[in-house]
Computed example of a mutant assay.
Amino acid sequence: PVPRAQTNGKAVAAAVCGLLCVPSMGLTGIPAVVLGHVARAEIRSRGELGDGLALTGLVLGWLSTAGWALVLVLLTVVSIAAG
């Protein structure tokens, strides 16, 4: 029998970091994005499994990063408007 391809470890780490974005208040968002991109590149070149995990980490990481960027922009606008 042909051996089954392994799941990329960085893809698993990206998904875990993405899932931890809420309890860590966005602290793991950027690592999720970086790990997700690296994992997807490795998966394509090595033929490994875990593309869905890497994509999950990417999406959750980008959502977390965008959410915090929006919060910072809104706080800045309110701060400037309040004088």
Rank of each mutant, 00 (worst) to 15 (best):
P1G: 15
V2C: 07
P3Y: 09
P3N: 07
R4M: 07
A5L: 08
Q6A: 15
Q6R: 14
T7Q: 07
T7L: 07
T7E: 15
N8H: 10
N8L: 10
N8F: 08
N8E: 15
N8C: 07
K10R: 13
K10A: 09
A11E: 04
A11G: 01
V12M: 14
V12W: 14
A13Q: 15
A13L: 10
A14C: 05
A14P: 09
A14I: 05
A15F: 04
A15D: 13
V16T: 12
C17H: 01
C17A: 15
G18H: 03
L19R: 09
L19W: 00
P23S: 02
P23W: 00
P23A: 05
S24A: 13
S24Q: 03
G26E: 03
L27M: 15
L27P: 05
G29Q: 08
G29E: 03
I30Y: 01
I30F: 01
P31F: 00
P31H: 03
A32K: 04
A32Q: 01
V33R: 02
V33M: 12
V34L: 08
V34N: 01
L35I: 03
L35G: 03
G36A: 04
H37Q: 13
V38G: 01
V38E: 11
A39G: 02
A39D: 09
A39Q: 08
R40D: 10
R40L: 08
R40H: 10
A41L: 04
E42N: 12
I43A: 06
I43C: 03
R44E: 15
R46V: 05
R46D: 13
G47V: 12
G47T: 06
G47P: 06
E48C: 04
L49R: 13
G50K: 09
G50H: 07
D51S: 14
D51R: 11
L53K: 14
A54T: 00
L55Y: 05
L55I: 11
L55P: 04
L55R: 14
T56Y: 00
L58R: 06
L58H: 07
L58G: 04
L60E: 00
L60S: 01
W62N: 13
W62Q: 13
S64C: 09
S64D: 07
S64A: 15
S64W: 02
T65N: 08
G67V: 01
G67M: 02
G67P: 00
G67F: 02
W68T: 04
A69K: 03
A69V: 07
L70R: 04
L70W: 02
V71G: 08
L72D: 06
L72A: 11
L72Y: 09
L72I: 05
L72M: 11
L72H: 05
V73C: 04
L74N: 04
L75H: 10
L75I: 05
T76S: 14
T76V: 10
V77D: 06
V77W: 14
V77L: 14
V77I: 11
V78E: 06
V78S: 09
V78R: 08
I80M: 09
A81T: 07
A81I: 06
A82C: 06
A82Y: 12
G83P: 00
